[in-house]
Amino acid sequence: MRWIWIDKFIEFNSGRSAVALKNVTLAEEHLHDHFPGFPVMPECLMIEGMAQTTGILVGEARNFEEKVILAKIKKAVFFDYVKAGDSLRLEARIESLAPEAASTSGRITRGEKLIAEIDLMFSHVDKNLAGKEFPEENFVFDDASVFGSLLRNVASQSADRGAAGSEQE
């Protein structure tokens, strides 16, 4: 099982930006203990959600040819609690992309309310640790994983919108 902290992509601009959606629910067991009597989404999981959103964006930018790992949390600032029933919008943007790494910025919002600002750095391990081998299962950002289905879904949504657009014309 993998913890996945985004439910779907609603926008995906290859190599540039992406927007993912996360619906928080009381069915998530950790909310029952964090904190007892005051269930809120742990902030570290919001960072993970942003890392997944931006990680897929960075991996896809180079067709998943490199293994992309979270290397640095440049900034993580939180402005409000997130509770069950909240719909979070995770907006991610690639700021810099080089052969060996990428730098990203991100915002999490709930409606108009800013929840968090999370800026990250990703390392392309193939380019940085040439020759060393890693177990495949550690790496999630490839087409075959559950994450792949997230990307296929957003692709079909965009195709639907494209078709609807052309009918209107």
Binding site: K72, S96, A98, A101, S103, M121, N128
Partner: peptide, 22 residues
């Protein structure tokens, strides 16, 4: 640390509008 060097390179490129091969 090593990843910080890349971070610094990216930030320098942005701040000064220059391209820096690593």
């Amino acid at each position: 640390e090593s990843i910080d060097f890349l971070d610094i390179v990216f930030r320098l490129e942005k701040a000064f509008s220059i391209k820096i091969p690593r």
